[in-house]
Amino acid sequence: MRPFIKAENVVHEYSRRDEEGNVTDINRALDGVDIEVTAGDFVAVLGANGSGKSTFAKHLNALLVPTEGTLYVDGKDTSDHNNDLKIRQTAGMVFQNPDNQIISNIVEEDVGFGPENIGVPTEEIWRRVEESLKNVEMYEYRKQSPNHLSGGQKQRVAIAGIMAMKPNCIILDEPTAMLDPEGRKSVIKTVRELNKKENITIILITHYMEEVTAADYVYVMGSGQIKMRGTPRQIFARSEELTKYKLTIPEVTKIALELIKKGIQIPKDILYVEELTNALLKLKMHQ
């Protein structure tokens, strides 16, 4: 099967210019990124601030194009500007700041903004708005002003706004960085449900470790490169490497690794609290 997203040696350079337009400084934000994502997958991209993960996210939406290398989204080359609208429609993007991506004063009108832009007929817009708002459990707020919603609710409205364009994939660029724990949970739950029920390909960009445990596959970025790749369990078992890229593992994995250091025989890729306690209780029983 053709991969939904295929990045081959993608390089992106930001260049700073002086008054005469001469390049004074080149910053290589992406340095040879190779990624393949299969349709329907839930993929997480982990990275510290400045690792290049947001620059990469913007490439997936054709908001930026590679300086070198190629990037295909749903078989379309992102560096061809004729493909922009098709790519953005099939791979929608949710940003970090909930306030700065809501355009309208009324929730339902904001969700309708995308479909309006791509010329969906009026009745169909209404149907899609209703469906998307129900999908993110925000239907009862449809007549409200976004100014009165919490951060988590605003992010769910933003997700609905993307869903209304009927995409195959949603890219979320640190969607929870500005939210409180409850908002964070609700957004991640929504994203997981869209992945499972609607079979939407998810690309979640984040630095919160707890959010990636549910992902099918994880990429770790550092200084513009893919430094590690694997399932969450494979990644978190390599805790020392993660620290090198300014990331940490979930606390429970840390406890498990500490115990292993002390000679206790438990698996080293534990991700959940229940997993650890069950393993420990079983061990105690066998003693």
């Binding site: 510290a48 630095h207 300014k246 990331l247 940490t248």
Partner: peptide, 8 residues
Amino acid sequence: VAGLDPAG
């Protein structure tokens, strides 16, 4: 620490 990565 809102919005900072683990190292930050």
